[in-house]
Amino acid sequence: LEARLEQAAMLKRVVDAIKDLVQDCNFDCNDSGIALQAMDNSHVALVSMMLKSESFSPFRCDRNIALGINLTSLTKVLRAAQGDDILTLKAEDAPDVVNLTFESPESDRLSEYDIKLMDIDQEHLGIPDTEYAATITLPSSEFSRITRDLSALSESVAIECTKEGVKFTCTGDIGNGSVSLRQHTNVENDAKSVDISLTEPVALTFSLKYLVNFCKAAGLSDRVRLCLSNEVPLLVEYGLSNNSYLRFYLAPKIGD
């Protein structure tokens, strides 16, 4: 494997966004790119990352390899990279280590690190293609604000999507709160628009602790997509350039 990223910031942000949910992960490398799928310890949330080969320049992967990496270790090493450094990942066939180099675009500084790999026995997760009843695309900063504000009051949020719009509601010891958003097109800045596409009304409840955690990915994309259907996990997607993405899935809370 040899994969060169123009900006180390992308990988730094991706790892930062997932490291509190999952610890030891396989980075599955093949000629289409680098993928990661892992459930959190409690088995109610799932992270799915896809960095397509087009996101790297150049990208070369001659044989499929799984790089078992501890994300705490990776975070320590990535801390040594500046956001605008050029980052290159390298691994041999049947590797013991993954090699990372950080090149400063302005100076002749080159740093190089090896991270020891681990054997991770991870079951393959067959994430199904799902037709969702409701899809909401909104500014990622808005979603972060809603989850942060409501998490101050309660552990859970009810998300209700109808043709009127989407409503986030919480109930806690000190009182209750809600935020409603309507479909809205911002003609000056499309990134600020709220798009809602609905085939049937949906109402589901989720743990805010996880949603707040997912919002650590907000720096990766101006927009976030929420996909909901009754009785299936919520999909929270941050799209990256070149069709790469970071997706989070969270099972709804169900009453009796």
Partner: peptide
């Protein structure tokens, strides 16, 4: 939490 885990299992197993 058991319900949530089961929802995930059904989702992933199709």
């Amino acid at each position: 939490k058991i319900f949530q885990q089961q929802i995930f299992k059904f989702f992933l197993d199709g």
